[in-house]
């Protein structure tokens, strides 16, 4: 029984502790204070915001503006 208590309590303490540490790390490293910057992280110079990046292979020659709502692009 002691064995099970060690596993259950040990893992519960480790997990709770790591969650608290992760939250503390995020708060002290400005991970939670720049939401606009965070939201833009999926975009970069190669695949900038406003450019759709996926389409059916047969339709790879053009994406009409009305379909994307973002001005479209020719490829």
């Amino acid at each position: 029984m002691v064995f099970y208590w060690i596993i259950i309590l040990g893992s519960a303490i480790c997990l709770s502790g790591s969650a608290v540490f992760a939250l503390w790390w995020a708060a002290t490293n400005n991970q939670l204070s720049h939401p606009k910057k965070g939201a833009l992280l999926v975009f970069d110079e190669e695949e900038p915001m406003g450019i759709p990046t996926d389409h059916f292979p047969a339709k790879s020659t053009a994406v009409p503006p009305s379909e994307t709502g973002r001005g479209g692009r020719s490829v």
Binding site: L23, P35, K36, F43, P52
Partner: peptide, 26 residues
């Protein structure tokens, strides 16, 4: 959270809400 913004070329509606969603799930 990665593919929807990436494909339509538009950032996630609310980044604060997304982080809040993660911590409440946890």
């Amino acid at each position: 959270y990665y593919f929807i913004p990436k494909i339509i070329g538009r950032p996630i509606h609310s980044y604060h809400l997304s982080v809040f969603g993660f911590w409440s799930l946890a």
